[in-house]
């Protein structure tokens, strides 16, 4: 199963501008599997992305928009992307600010399906 996770992450990290991808236990914010460039703090990425997704989910569900299927945080020097994965996991990507988000999103959704 771990190899399956790794293959799915590798697929996402092949997108230009992606600095790291990881599977995170959504409720716990702990790393399940990761494929990160040097310098990316995996535990921080996992904990913070899961917390952000959890907080955004409350707002989204209260606004009757349902469970977020894709979250994109755009910052001045980078991007953070997150999508739900099977078994309560979250697929998280950290990338350059000018990443092709459409392509990354597509690969993330495919990776999510591959894990299922």
């Amino acid at each position: 199963m771990t190899t399956g996770f790794q293959k799915a992450l590798d697929r996402v990290t092949r997108v230009r501008g992606v600095r790291g991808a990881m599977l995170v236990a959504g409720d716990d914010g702990l790393v399940v599997a990761e494929s990160l460039m040097e310098g990316v703090r995996g535990n921080a990425l996992a904990a913070l992305a899961a917390s952000l997704a959890k907080r955004f989910r409350r707002a989204s569900e209260t606004a009757a928009c349902g469970l977020p299927q894709f979250i994109h945080l755009q910052a001045s020097q980078g991007s953070l992307l997150a999508a739900p994965a099977p078994s309560g996991m979250l697929l998280v990507v950290v990338a350059e600010a000018d990443i092709n988000v459409g392509l990354a999103r597509l690969e993330m959704l495919k990776a999510g399906e591959a894990i299922a």
Binding site: A44, G66, L67, L73, Q74, S76, A97
Partner: peptide, 19 residues
């Protein structure tokens, strides 16, 4: 903490709506 600079916006695609 992830050294991404200042956040500008967050977009979410939900099951039933976008934010």
């Amino acid at each position: 903490l992830l050294e991404l600079g200042e956040w500008r916006w967050i977009m979410a695609e939900g099951d039933a709506g976008h934010l």
